[in-house]
Design a binder for these strands. Structure first.
Lengths: 158, 158
DNA sequence: CGGCATCCTTAGGGATACTG
DNA sequence: CAGTATCCCTAAGGATGCCG
């Protein structure tokens, strides 16, 4: 990345950077891991707790935060002949975190993993799924091809 | 994501998921934010502390962890006529986190930000940079187009 | 300038026991 | 099954002051 903020632009702009805002929601490790589980298809409380390896109180607290933030939604459901159960499902806001989790998985695969774990594949084609940096005009790009800029405002009013 | 792990595959495979491994390194918010700063071009201790908004002891501890983990490297340098200084630079391992940070920024832009902050643009073309899910064969894809699979081992020995 | 030592507060998380 | 209440421990982080 070659660009810098124009020095006249206050660095305080960076305090309002979306990465910081995102991290205010994805505060800690267990939050990320619960979201990972949701993508893996987990819906029930006990499964979240067991698969992520969290105690019940922590699981309850984090899931509630995720529901409050709108990344998961809780709903009651009932299978015929059984009693009512609850499940947690990804909202659109939660689902939209998939690229972030895939990016993290990809980095971990390359730099931290000894070859265990799971992976994502394109259905049918079967090729491994990853993320790519790409600009809105569709060009693939490397870190060196981009610059940091203050957000362009929509045309200012009169 | 429609697929699930075959129930015969132990969920313990997920304990070794690369996302978890990645989060063992990117343990907390300040670690992410220091990496963000490194991408923004920050190299000096005081700038890291000030721009991320961390106290000196915390800045020192996190930067040391990042150096120990190999995401940053510390080097002495000297401008002509001035005394020796230190700076922190991204390693290849650190640079490889860019897609993760861009994905986070993109999510934050869409769901948490009120329109402030900064953004990344493709140099020349000027279009905004983001991440895309794409399989190794080059197909762009949505969440529904992928399945979760146990990692394929390279051909097992005899 | 680029830290480290010390002390203190808060947030994250486990264990256990209990409830609807 | 899906939690809550309580208690306790550790990790994260700020404030202040000192050092090469």
């Amino acid at each position: 990345m070659t660009g810098r903020l124009d020095p006249r632009e206050s660095w305080s702009a960076i305090d309002r950077c979306s990465i910081g805002k995102a991290l205010d929601v994805l505060r800690n490790r267990s939050t990320f891991l619960l979201m990972r589980e949701a993508f893996y298809g987990t819906t029930r409380f006990e499964d979240f707790a067991e698969r992520v390896g969290l105690s019940d109180p922590v699981t309850a607290a984090r899931l509630r935060e995720l529901v409050d933030e709108g990344l998961l939604e809780r709903e009651d459901y009932r299978e015929p002949g059984k009693r009512t159960r609850q499940r947690y499902r990804l909202t659109e806001k939660g689902s939209d975190l998939l690229p972030t989790l895939v990016a993290l998985m990809q980095w971990g695969d390359r730099w931290e993993n000894d070859g265990g774990g799971v992976e994502l594949r394109h259905q049918g084609c079967g090729a491994k799924v990853g993320v790519e940096l790409r600009c809105a005009d569709g060009h693939a790009l490397d870190a060196g091809d981009m610059e940091l800029a203050a957000r362009r405002r929509r045309r200012a009013g009169p």
